[in-house]
């Protein structure tokens, strides 16, 4: 009655999806699923929490917007206001139309770059990072489920075979 760790290979995304649904229904824990392309509905089937990355992006955008305003206010109005073409450097709001393009660009800049950095950090992606997919064919045309065996190993194995798994491997933890 020992819990084993299984690596199960599939060669079709629809079959994989049905298998995942079945495994979740059987209350067997799935550690990870590795696919060569995003499979629609897989994250829901695995009961993954939706990602909050877009919310962080919105916040980053707000930060960018604020940074641009603070920067230009300090530079053009507070620290060294100049008479440039007669433009009213008396207050931010009077000179604001000239600042709009940069306010917009910095908002997008901060939102995009901080979001991508967040994504890379959260998904552990950076140069010199070693890949962690157990089978190299999962970036080609195979799909791999890294799961517990459940209490009954042979029952799990037969269920998986019935669902269309092309190979089942027992691995060390």
């Amino acid at each position: 009655m020992s819990l084993k760790r299984l690596h199960v290979l599939f060669d079709d995304d629809d079959i994989l999806l049905d298998a995942v649904k079945e495994i979740v229904k059987s209350k067997i824990y799935i550690h990870e699923v590795y696919t060569p392309f995003p499979v629609h509905g897989l994250d829901k089937a695995m009961k993954l929490k939706p990602t909050k990355i877009s919310i962080t992006t919105f916040i980053y955008g707000c930060i960018g917007f604020t940074v641009s305003i603070l920067m230009m206010n300090y530079i053009m109005i507070v620290d060294w206001p100049q008479d440039i073409g007669g433009k009213p450097s008396f207050s931010y709001i009077e000179n604001m139309p000239a600042f709009v393009p940069i306010m917009f660009e910095l908002t997008v800049f901060f939102a995009a770059h901080l979001m991508v950095i967040t994504f890379y950090l959260r998904s552990k992606l950076w140069p010199f990072k070693e890949a962690e997919n157990p089978d190299p064919s999962t970036t080609d045309d195979k799909f791999l489920i890294d799961m517990d065996s459940g209490s009954n190993l042979s029952k799990t194995k037969s269920m998986l075979k019935k669902m269309g798994a092309i190979s089942i491997k027992e691995v060390k933890e």
Binding site: E32, V33, Y34, T35, P36, F37, P38, V39, L42, D43, M46, L48, P50, T51, I53, F119, Y120, R122, S123, K124, L125, W126, P127, F128, K129, E130, A131, E132, N133, T138, T139
Partner: peptide, 14 residues
């Protein structure tokens, strides 16, 4: 490839 592994969560974020 920055160590891309194709996990479901990664694809979700991707």
């Amino acid at each position: 490839s920055f160590g891309w592994s194709g996990r479901a969560k990664d694809w979700q974020r991707f």
